[in-house]
Nucleic acid binder design. Sequence first.
RNA 1: GGCGCUAUCGUCUAGGGGUUAGGACGGAAGAUUCUCAAUCUUCAAACCCGGGUUCGAUUCCCGGUAGCGCUACCA
Length: 483
Amino acid sequence: MLRVRFAPSPTGFLHVGSARTFIFNWLYARRNGGTMVLRLDDTDVERNTEASVNSIFGGLRWLDLGWDEEYKQSERLALHRQIADAIFQKGLAYRDFTPAHAGDSERSGPSQTWLFNPGMRELSREESDRRAAAGEPFALRFRVPRGLGQQVRFTDAVYGEQVKAADDIEDFALLRSDGMPTYHLASCADDVDLKISHIIRGQDHLSNTYKHVLIFEAAGAAVPHFAHLPLLVAPDGSKLSKRKHGPIVSVTTYRDAGFLPEAFLNFLCLLGWSPKDDRDRMSRQELIDAFSLEGINRANAVVNFKEPAATPEEMFDPKAVWLNAEHIRALPVEDLSARLLPVMREGGVNVTPEKMLAVTPLIRERIKLMRDALTAADFFFVDQLPPYDPAELIPQKGDAAMAAKALTRAREVLAKTEFRHDPLDHALRAAAQELGLKAGQMFQPIRVAACGRKNAPPLFETLEVLGREKTLARIEGALRNLS
RNA sequence: GGCGCUAUCGUCUAGGGGUUAGGACGGAAGAUUCUCAAUCUUCAAACCCGGGUUCGAUUCCCGGUAGCGCUACCA
């Protein structure tokens, strides 16, 4: 039975790297009929926050992926201690009574490799028991086989055969002196108990995996399969951090900016994985069908965002934005319209589903992010157009007089033309011809009058949706501006 | 410092002992349309360096360099 897990520690918002790890696990489970387990690795009580849990769940809910089972590591401490004790009873771990030091010993000084504490490792069982019984605090450390030339090995589905001399592995802690399990112990104990068959996680754990193999073996459990994922990094190659890179590393930023969850999912999948057949836009189902561990590559992938966040949407990886536009265009108009509705309303636009459905085809190819609809379609929803430069009304190779002539004629024609695409097309083209104007010279003043700007959707469809009343009022306004 | 992982256009990647080294984004140019988009066409753009193996290496091996990870009683 194939079982995978996503095990975030709730110490921050949902990170794009974590999201991708979740996605790859999910894809693997769905592809192979496996079970997806979500486990909150919350043993670091100090750093866990409720806000973080909310961010993780909120992000995952948005991605709409789902999982089959859910656990909280902090509720499973008894299991962790039981396994730690079993390892200790087998003589594969020892008590270390050295007072805890707050992680300051590294980086300063000659920084020698710390492997183990000989005094504590060699302490007799009697002495150890006596000091423990006396209430002296201790950390429990794994007794890594030393001086025997042993090797620890495992096969990684992505990185291949991995071997390390046991002598190079430090005697890592299993339990802290306060009795709480460390990440390594808790993670492995839970993986054993939850019968996780495949561990798919970030490559930052590749070198930790030797320790985990040691724990699995010491616990007498089967060692699961491993697949490590290349890391997602910033354009300068450094690892993504909120501290340094800000909201761009948070999944909710993409949601709030108007990414479609399936587009974001698609984008993340293409970082460090390839279907190997030149496809780029892929649906959820296509991703499931194409996913395999063989498609994962080994080099870190850059999330190509702009460091000093330029304009709001210019900061995103251009490929993510493009993919989003692709997904938007691939959506049936009805679906896109329905999904645009809440975006517009959140943006303060009062719009009916009917109106939205009429507007959607006009902006569909003109928006990259969902929120772009707010600016792309603004003129459909306001009573009064915001002020614009009357010079915009003047057509190519024309002057104010030409603009006035075109608008005056348009006012007459539009007063009696049916407001549908074809009649509008015929009437306005005929009017242009009468006036001796090129189509563009006729249309531009009308477009600017109706939309308040030069760049807008095609004229006839736009007028049709806008309606006669608003159109004529706006032409009226434009003529006033011109004089 | 120690141990390990990685290295193809600016970015994501395909490929693999002999290829015009392929695709995508982004960039440039053009076509098209009533503007803007969308679409289509074209162009520029890469095998980290040095040794070896080989008739032949970008591909295999070794070394270097660089980047990254681990080296906590964080996860």
